[in-house]
Amino acid sequence: MPLILRDRRVLITVAVLVSLAVAAAVLPRPSIFQVREWAESMGPAFVLIFFVAQAVLTITPVPRTVFTLSAGLLFGPVSGIAVTISATTVSAVLALLLVRALGRRAVQARLSHPAVKAIDARLARRGWLAVGSLRLIAPAPFALVNYCCALSSVRLVPYTAATVVGILPGTVGVVLLGDALTGDTNPVLMIVTTICVALGVAGLLLETRLPG
C-alpha cells in the first residue's frame, strides 16, 4: 500500500474519532431516569427483544455482564432479574446443544484459550457441581464454560439446573446494581446486592476447598 494512501486513511480515521468524541461531549444525552422511562414506554415488546438479543448474542463470547447491568437499569429489579436469569439459561442451553450438534472434535480443535484445560479438569473431577461453581463469580468466561461443558459428558438437565443455581447470586447482585444507577433504589436492595455477591464468592471458595 502506498505511504500517502496509508497516511490518508490514518488521518480520516483520526478525524472520524475526533468528530465522534466532540459530538458525544456537545450533544445532549438522556439521563438514566429518562432511559428507564423510555424502556417502560416501549412495553413488553422491548423486553422480548432484549431477551432474544441476550440469549442469542451471549452464545458467542460477548460479555453477559453488559446485558445483566442493562436489565437492572432498564427494567428494574424484578423484571430485570427474571429476564436476565431466563435469557442466560436459554443461552447456555443453546450453546451446549449447538456445540454438540457441530461435533465435539471440530469445536475442540478451535478452543485454544489458556483456561480451557483448567475448566476441563474441573468438569472431569466434579461434573455438574463444577458447572455450578464456574457459574459463580469466577474468572472463567461464560461462553467458554458453555463450550467446555458441551465437550464434556455433563448431561443437559443437571447442566441447566447447575447453571441456574450458579448464576443466581451474581446475576441478582449485578441487576440490583444496575437498578441502583437510576438513583431511586430502596437501600434494602443494596444490602441484598452485597449479600448476593458474598454468597457467590463463598460458594466458589467452598467448592475449591472440597476434596477432589
Score class of each variant (00 low, 15 high):
Leu176Asp: 01
Asn146Ala: 09
Ala53Met: 09
Leu98His: 00
His113Ile: 10
Val26Pro: 10
Leu17Asp: 07
Arg110Met: 07
Arg104Val: 04
Ile85Lys: 08
Thr89Ala: 08
Arg125Glu: 15
Gly173Glu: 03
Ala95Trp: 05
Ala71Leu: 04
Gly170Phe: 02
Val175His: 00
Ala87Leu: 13
Gly127Leu: 06
Ala15Gln: 07
Met42Val: 10
Leu3Ala: 15
Phe33Trp: 01
Leu94Asp: 02
Leu96Thr: 06
Pro30Glu: 04
Lys117His: 08
Gly170Pro: 03
Arg155Gly: 11
Arg105Ser: 14
Val10Glu: 10
Phe75Tyr: 04
Thr182Met: 02
Ala25Leu: 07
Val52Thr: 12
Ser133Glu: 13
Ile12Val: 15
Thr171Asp: 08
Val35Tyr: 00
Pro44Ile: 08
His113Tyr: 05
Leu20Pro: 13
Ala45Ile: 12
Val10Leu: 13
Ala23Asp: 05
Ile49Gln: 10
Arg36Ala: 11
Glu207Gln: 15
Arg29Cys: 07
Ser31Met: 02
Pro28His: 10
Arg105Tyr: 00
Thr89Pro: 09
Ala95Phe: 02
Leu11Ile: 12
Ala95Leu: 07
Val172His: 10
Pro169Asp: 10
Arg100Glu: 09
Pro61Tyr: 03
Ala180Trp: 00
Ala95Tyr: 03
Ala82Ile: 05
Val175Arg: 01
